[in-house]
């Protein structure tokens, strides 16, 4: 048959059994850890080799299990969500000031990561994130908020979501600069439990979710759940 040979990595075995792709390697790692562990080239190569070995199969579908158990990570199988984390009683209230403080850690992150950052979905530079915070606060308060940086073809709820993602990236990467060994669960508990930004995003989520528009509800689901 004419076409391109494919091999794939599967995270949900039960779904792969239904879809039946030609070749799939099921791995026992948590969501977000498809190749095993970040910065672990040896484990990533073992996963990659196991997926590429399936290419020699003469017929399919082939679904094989990666031999290791969930040794790739000490993280929970799925990330902890905001609704399961109670905010501390002494969470700071000034999000803009906190964001400015986080920028110092974020600059350190950029130095160690070689400039790599997940910020950038809004196109607004980190140096102007106080403006993003003001926009999100006004939005959460029910105001008719918008930003000139939103292009006309990006619906408002999608833009709100990108603002939330950029802000989260600033904090998560800043936290990694403070504590390089921190895992996703620890950072999520800090962000949703101890930061003013986390509480702001809970309020943003509430306004999006209160809408009858399914596009707003979808954005809410992506900001916090």
């Amino acid at each position: 048959m004419e076409g391109i040979a494919t091999t794939s990595i599967s995270l949900v075995r039960e779904h792969t059994e239904k879809v039946k792709p030609p070749r799939a390697l099921w791995v026992p790692f948590p969501f977000g850890h498809a190749l095993g562990r970040p910065d672990d080239a040896a484990l990533q190569h073992r996963v990659l080799r196991a997926a590429l070995e399936l290419l020699s199969a003469p017929a399919g579908p082939v679904l094989r299990d990666f031999p290791d158990d969930a040794e790739g990570s000490d993280q929970p199988p799925a990330p902890v969500q905001a609704s399961t984390i109670a905010p501390a009683t002494d969470v700071p209230r000034d999000v803009a000031m906190e964001t400015t403080q986080m920028r110092r850690y974020h600059e350190r992150w950029l130095e160690t990561s070689g400039g790599r950052t997940a910020c950038g979905l809004t196109g607004i530079p980190v140096t102007r994130f106080r403006g993003v915070v003001r926009f999100l606060e006004e939005f959460a308060d029910g105001g008719d908020a918008d930003m000139t940086e939103r292009s006309a073809d990006v619906p408002l709820p999608n833009f709100v979501r990108y603002c939330a993602d950029d802000l989260k990236a600033l904090y998560y990467e800043g936290h990694l600069a403070m504590k390089s060994a921190a895992g996703g669960e620890e950072i999520a508990r800090w962000f949703w439990g101890e930061t003013a930004a986390g509480q702001l995003l809970r309020r943003v989520r509430n306004r999006l979710d209160a809408s009858d528009d399914p596009r707003w509800k979808a954005a809410a689901f992506g900001v916090a759940r």
């Binding site: 970040p38 990694l176 669960e185 950072i187 900001v223």
Partner: peptide
Amino acid sequence: IGFDRVPML
């Protein structure tokens, strides 16, 4: 947000 973003960061 059903997956952990930290590894990707």
